[in-house]
């Protein structure tokens, strides 16, 4: 009984802080064709992204806390090892409390792909696909595709070189990009739905092709746009993960299709 009361009290307290912050809305992203770093097939890298909805910022600790309060099977003491490694939510003070190392407005990290996927389902959504994420992340504040800007590339790469140090800032500490999306770069890495398909070759169906690629890394990638180093680093990082892994710089945000999800 006391425990139930505590849960309700916590829920009220943290819901309060969530409402005080801006709501992490799903905003409509107008799709289009764009050159991806991942080839669509052996002869071209022109990917087509349909219109979709994307959350404006990465999911925060406060938002994820609300999730585990009504989905207790995703609390860190209960989530089975097959779905989340032993560092899952380890920055939190307790299974249902955040503490000093996990502030409400910081992006939630140390979440597995399975946990992120379950969260997005609970939001009637899904994780964005790689192409959707890449499309949105190609924008700077002014242009939908700023990847030809050296200054912008340098800015992103300088972040990649510092990632891993110091505490994470709050979400939305920097200006939104052209799509009105925050923190596509500069805060955390983000899970995508199809991260396990990223480095699977587009042209080799013979035995061992896919598996060799898993381990041969960049040397075996038939990737396009090699100058787009920052995004390639992200591909390499995501490709090295298993769905149960968690890291201190890896978070997520959710997407929704224009048609209702299955």
């Amino acid at each position: 009984m006391n425990k139930a009361m505590a849960v309700i009290l916590l829920h009220v307290l943290f819901s309060g802080s969530v409402f005080a912050a801006e709501v992490n809305q799903f905003i409509r992203i107008e799709g289009g064709d764009f050159r991806s770093v991942i080839p669509v097939d052996e002869s071209n890298n022109l990917a087509t992204v349909s219109d979709f909805y994307l959350q404006q910022s990465p999911v925060t600790n406060a938002e994820f806390l609300r999730f585990v309060l009504y989905r207790p099977e995703w609390q860190r003491e209960r989530a089975p090892g097959i779905f989340a490694d032993d560092q899952y939510l380890s920055a939190w003070a307790g299974p249902i409390s955040l503490g000093q190392d996990a502030l409400p407005d910081q992006p939630v990290t140390r979440v597995s792909w399975f946990a992120a996927n379950a969260y997005c389902k609970s939001e009637n959504g899904r994780l964005p696909t790689w192409y959707e994420w890449e499309f949105v992340a190609a924008a700077n504040e002014k242009r939908s595709d700023a990847r030809d800007s050296d200054a912008w590339q340098r800015q992103i790469i300088s972040w990649y070189s510092t990632v891993g140090g110091g505490p994470l800032s709050s979400v939305r500490a920097r200006p939104a990009n052209y799509h009105n999306v925050y923190d596509a770069h500069g805060l955390v890495w983000e899970w995508v739905d199809d991260f396990t398909g990223l480095l699977v070759s587009g042209d080799n169906r013979e035995q061992g092709g896919a598996d060799q690629l898993q381990f041969c890394g960049a040397g075996a990638i038939t990737m396009e746009e090699k100058e787009n180093y920052a995004v390639l680093m992200r591909v390499a990082m995501l490709s090295s993960l298993e769905a149960r892994f968690t890291t201190r710089n890896l978070g997520f945000r959710c997407a929704r299709s224009m048609e209702p999800n299955q």
């Binding site: 396990t196 398909g197 699977v200 092709g209 896919a210 298993e242 769905a243």
Partner: peptide, 18 residues
């Protein structure tokens, strides 16, 4: 993901997979 199987659907409807 649970079995550590990676796959990708190709534009011609075929698949590459671990």
């Amino acid at each position: 993901g649970m079995f550590g199987v990676r796959y990708k659907k190709l534009p011609d409807g075929e698949f590459n997979h671990s």
